[in-house]
Simulated scan of single mutants.
Amino acid sequence: MRIGKQNQALTAIATSDADTITVRGYDLCSDLIGQIDFSDYFWLLVIGQKPTPAQRKMLDACLVAIAEHGLVPSVQAARMTLAAGPEAWQGAMAAGLLGMGSVVAGSTEVSGQYLAQGMAKAKSEGCDLETAVIASLNELKAARKKIPGLGHPQHSEGDPRAIKLLDLADEQGVSGRYVETLRMLAKHAPGIINRPLPINVSGAIPAVILDAGWPLEALKAVPLLARTAGLAAHLYEESLRSIGFIMSHQADVAISYDGAASKPSSSNS
């Protein structure tokens, strides 16, 4: 049974024959290997053209900013998976990547979508960006929802990673409509929500990389690639000095049982 469209059996990414391998119109061996760094290649693979120096700078900065994030749930899942199956690096890596949801790492995509929605709201309603941002914030407040891209439990005075990325975007001349929207949100959110809400790294990354020309539809690829590097470090360390079972034991110690009491067994007399 055929499902979905059947008339677009095409790819523009790569092909090969007996003599050559072509990637995005470049000969892999003569044009790319040893001639291009990985960030440029990542941009080329996804978008189909090499980045400008400013685009490369922003991509590198975003990847470095969130490659490592400590023992978050996705990292713990990866390390415990490797502890249970030391031969299964691919399974442990997959466990870590699968743990990147809307709260951890995937929050970059959520924030990017929210910024895009704010810009679209201003356009569709024929109002200025500030009016659209204020209306959006009031809607989230009424629904008691968090503001994507704003707030941090530790860096209440400002996420230093976000500050650095935004400053860099300004320096590189890539700051545009997305950064403007994010800064507008940060300007009005504290007064509307009545608490400090600085821009966090999950807000800064989509703003700067989308303004740099990265496609919204591929936004999640950036944190996925970054965290792959961080996971590799954790898995290598786990293979040398394992803490996977220590974390598992600490969970047993930290979490108390509050279910039903054990029922006494009955015996037939």
Rank of each mutant, 00 (worst) to 15 (best):
Q113C: 03
V23H: 06
G244I: 12
W43N: 02
G158K: 01
L137Y: 05
L216Y: 02
E109S: 05
G126R: 05
S202V: 02
T228H: 06
M119N: 06
L185N: 06
A67G: 05
L59A: 03
Y236D: 10
D252A: 10
I147F: 11
L63Y: 04
L185A: 12
A229M: 13
L225I: 15
A186C: 08
I193K: 10
A18V: 09
L45H: 09
L59D: 04
H152R: 04
T181Q: 14
V253M: 12
A254P: 00
A116D: 14
N200A: 05
P153G: 09
G91C: 03
A132C: 06
P198N: 12
M93P: 00
A189Y: 08
L240V: 14
A92K: 03
L231W: 11
A218S: 13
V64Y: 04
L82G: 04
C29S: 11
A95N: 02
L115M: 05
Q117D: 14
S136N: 13
D27R: 13
V110S: 00
Q117F: 10
K145I: 04
N268Y: 15
H234D: 05
I3C: 06
A233I: 13
H69F: 12
K164Y: 13
A226G: 01
D31L: 07
G70H: 09
M93Y: 09
V208E: 02
I13H: 02
V174H: 01
E180A: 15
A54L: 04
T131L: 11
I13G: 00
P190D: 09
Q8C: 11
H234S: 04
A232G: 07
L32A: 02
L137H: 04
I47S: 01
D31F: 07
E217F: 06
S124P: 00
E125P: 00
S267G: 09
S266Q: 15
I255C: 10
E68Q: 09
V110R: 05
S266A: 14
L225G: 00
F245P: 00
P206L: 10
E68K: 11
H69N: 12
E217D: 14
P190F: 12
K123G: 04
S175C: 07
L182M: 07
E139P: 00
G101T: 05
L59M: 14
P160T: 10
S239H: 09
L166Q: 01
D170V: 10
K263P: 00
H234T: 06
G112C: 08
M58P: 01
E237S: 11
G48E: 03
G213V: 09
S256M: 11
G213S: 02
D211Y: 02
T108H: 13
D159N: 05
M1D: 07
M119G: 03
A120K: 15
T52D: 01
R79H: 04
I33S: 02
F38L: 14
Q154T: 13
T22M: 15
L216N: 01
D258N: 15
P190T: 09
Q8G: 04
A212N: 02
L115G: 03
E139R: 08
P198Q: 12
L45I: 15
A61M: 08
A251R: 12
L59H: 04
L235V: 08
I36K: 10
G244H: 07
S266K: 15
H69E: 07
S74I: 03
Q250E: 15
K146V: 12
A229W: 12
V46K: 01
G48H: 08
V64F: 07
P51T: 08
S136T: 14
V46S: 00
A92L: 08
G25H: 08
